[in-house]
């Protein structure tokens, strides 16, 4: 499988990475080189094989239902580009 320029733009948008028209052919070449490389997986017989879900099999531990975190609004917003009264700010989102 390989990707065309339209797909490169679609994927870039899906990943929210701006690409210029000039970058598209280059990216297309790189992505296709990677896809060509992984293509060899198609020769492996995977009939009846379970896809791996956890590499170290074990039971998932659960946390008790206890409030032991939070109340750190200064820490939460300390690195934010733009805040007001502990709210994060972003360009207006219209619904």
């Amino acid at each position: 499988m390989s990707v065309d320029a339209t797909t490169v733009r679609r994927i870039a948008h899906l990943a929210r990475i701006a690409v210029t028209e000039a970058e598209v052919p280059h990216l297309q070449g790189e992505l296709n080189a990677m896809l060509a490389f992984v293509e060899q997986l198609s020769e492996v017989n995977v009939d009846g094989v379970e896809p791996m879900t956890s590499v170290t099999p074990m039971e998932m531990k659960k946390r008790p239902d206890v409030v032991n975190d939070g109340e750190i609004p200064d820490d939460i917003v300390r690195n934010a580009p733009e805040t007001q009264n502990h709210f994060f700010l972003v360009p207006k989102v219209v619904e």
Binding site: D69, G70, E71, I72, P73, H86, F87, F88
Partner: peptide, 12 residues
């Protein structure tokens, strides 16, 4: 609650 008070580092 007050904004971003009931927030852990995980939630953020």
């Amino acid at each position: 609650g007050e904004p971003n008070t009931q927030v852990s580092l995980v939630d953020a």
